[in-house]
């Protein structure tokens, strides 16, 4: 991420960056179990955040208690606990609560549910969905598991090897995937009912980011690749409103015009 609103993150001083982080943008990490300082009680970690962002201790504790309630956490117990005394799901919910502590407008969630069992996954997602509505904030999910989040998100952006390959409203992308990678992703999800043999995995290995293939990064694994894919990288072509887009030569005319 380089820009937030008008501000270029690279041009900021440490303190400007520091102010932006958590007050405007917060983050929930993939392995939330390890994102808490193991030596401090949760209460102390909340106070540390409050102090460094010039927020009154009492006020911070009050909102922390509220957030605990939203997260179905016993605030008395959790706030006085050390991280190792909490279960994985609890730590995950604590780190979500921490992310919401300063009322940010954007929360980035990096695989927030992969480290959890299925039941905790469901409850964490339900909580996130509720919080999104009640706190009026934006969420960005980073995940490889489309099925889990498709209930919550509005838009999906599919990325391969660091580039956007497809974007659009969640219904469009899931029901009518256009990029072969998106199609492959969706085909690899085992269906709840029906024939398991229809589930397929993409062939090959994820691209080596240090040695990206020439042309389209996906062409070595793409079932529909043709000669042009090996020669030039496709640009992201969007429709008139910028709502949906795909980066694939299959959907571009020879002149590079938009055929959507």
């Amino acid at each position: 991420m380089r820009y937030f609103g008008q501000d270029n993150l690279y041009d900021m001083s440490y303190d400007q960056q520091r102010r932006l982080f958590w007050e405007k943008v917060a983050m929930v990490f993939q392995a939330a179990q390890n994102t808490l300082n193991p030596l401090l009680r949760i209460r102390q970690q909340i106070l540390d955040i409050a102090q460094d962002h010039d927020i009154d201790f009492q006020q911070a504790m009050n909102s922390a208690k509220q957030l605990c309630e939203i997260m179905y956490l016993d605030s008395e117990r959790v706030l006085n606990a050390y991280p190792h005394e909490l279960s994985g799901g609890m730590k995950q919910r604590v780190s979500i609560a921490l992310a919401l502590l300063l009322n940010p407008s954007l929360v980035v969630l990096d695989e927030p549910t992969t480290a959890l069992d299925v039941i905790s996954q469901a409850s964490v997602l339900r909580i996130l969905n509720d919080v999104r509505k009640s706190h009026n904030l934006s969420l960005i999910f980073i995940t490889h598991d489309i099925s889990v989040i498709s209930e919550i998100v509005d838009r999906i952006i599919v990325m391969y090897a660091g580039r956007i390959v497809e974007t659009g409203p969640v219904r469009d992308v899931i029901l009518h995937p256009r990029h072969p990678y998106t199609q492959g992703l969706l085909a690899s999800i085992p269906p709840l009912r029906g024939n398991l043999s229809r589930t397929r995995a993409l062939r090959g290995q994820p691209a080596d980011l240090l040695h990206l293939p020439h042309g389209c990064a996906f062409h070595e694994r793409c079932p529909r690749a043709f000669s042009r894919c090996r020669q030039e990288a496709p640009r992201l072509l969007t429709d008139d409103h910028g709502q949906t887009g795909v980066a694939c030569h299959l959907y571009a005319s020879d002149s590079g015009e938009n055929v959507l």
Partner: peptide, 9 residues
């Protein structure tokens, strides 16, 4: 003490 450097932008 440095800044967060990001490689994907």
């Amino acid at each position: 003490g440095g800044r967060v450097r990001s490689s994907s932008n």
